[in-house]
Amino acid sequence: MKQSRNRSLSILFQFGGLILSLGFVTVILLLVDANPIQAFSLIWQGAFGNPTRIANVVVAWVPLALVTCGVLATFTAGLWNIGIEGQITLGAIFTTGVIRLFLNTSVNPVLVIIIAVLAGVVGGILWAMLAGVLKVFGGVNEIFGGLGLNFIATALNIGLIFGAWSRPGVASMSGTEPFPEIYWLPTVGSFRFSWYSIALTLIGLVVIYFLLQNTHFGLKLKAVGKGIKSAYRLGIPTWQYMMLAFLVCGLFAGLAGALQVVAVYHRLIPAISSGYGFMGMMIGMLINYQAIWVAPVALFFAALNIGGIQLPIIMKLDSTLSGVMQGSLVLFILLMQGVQQRVLGKK
């Protein structure tokens, strides 16, 4: 009885957070003399107005859902894997490197794609483990180690695009030379999404759900996240579990980066991580680290991103409004959670 009352109260507070963030964005829009209703409906239209746009939302959903799955592992272990952006980038770099290696060989393209994606996964894992090693053995907080590694990954990426892997003739911000079509992940009709990407994402969602909910591994990870000292006293090898959390997160991030290359861009571009890593962390906080909510909330965020593209075209507004909406939503929900705890007293 009491539990259900608390539950409905909690929903009420979350709804309050949603209303507050909508109000905030409305005020922002009024500040720049824009019609909020027009902006909101434009975003809706931009995301779901026609089949191509819906397909684009799905394209954005894939990496977003994957990285969110990844950060749930590190969040559960109490780690702030801000280095996730770099881990996506390294995944993309490794994948591109492997495809370039096989470009003019007679190796079966399907095999090449598989090896390339696996290499991307390895790249993500390596970069994540680096942040982990710095944390565990170097005492460098994972937030700052990760940030530094993000900048290095970006530099490496741009260095390759303008240096060793530059287009013959002129290097440019448009990225490396696109691969021949045989190395693309097949897409559906004229749309940009691929069933393979979606299948991999769905597998990832199921795996992370069961890993965190139903296994000893998940339980121990939670114990580490709740408090390293007490977990250690319980006999859990804490640093090994922290490294495993980094490994799982790097795996998902690397896969996301790999798929961006083989399924979406077919080349390496400067902004290959597209900020999906940070967005995934925001989603993780918003859903209170519960795996069951990853798919729908990632879809919502992806829709905001794709819908926001219409803003500069039609209303001469900057598309970063999507980011403001996402950010204020997470902020107000979190604040309302705090208000709720304060009003009702801590459970």
């Binding site: 801000i82 950010g327 204020s328």
Partner: peptide
Amino acid sequence: LKQSQVAVGFILAITTRDL
């Protein structure tokens, strides 16, 4: 509100930039 400083700070870092 005794919420995580890191969480709120991170959200604000991203949101104020976009804003």
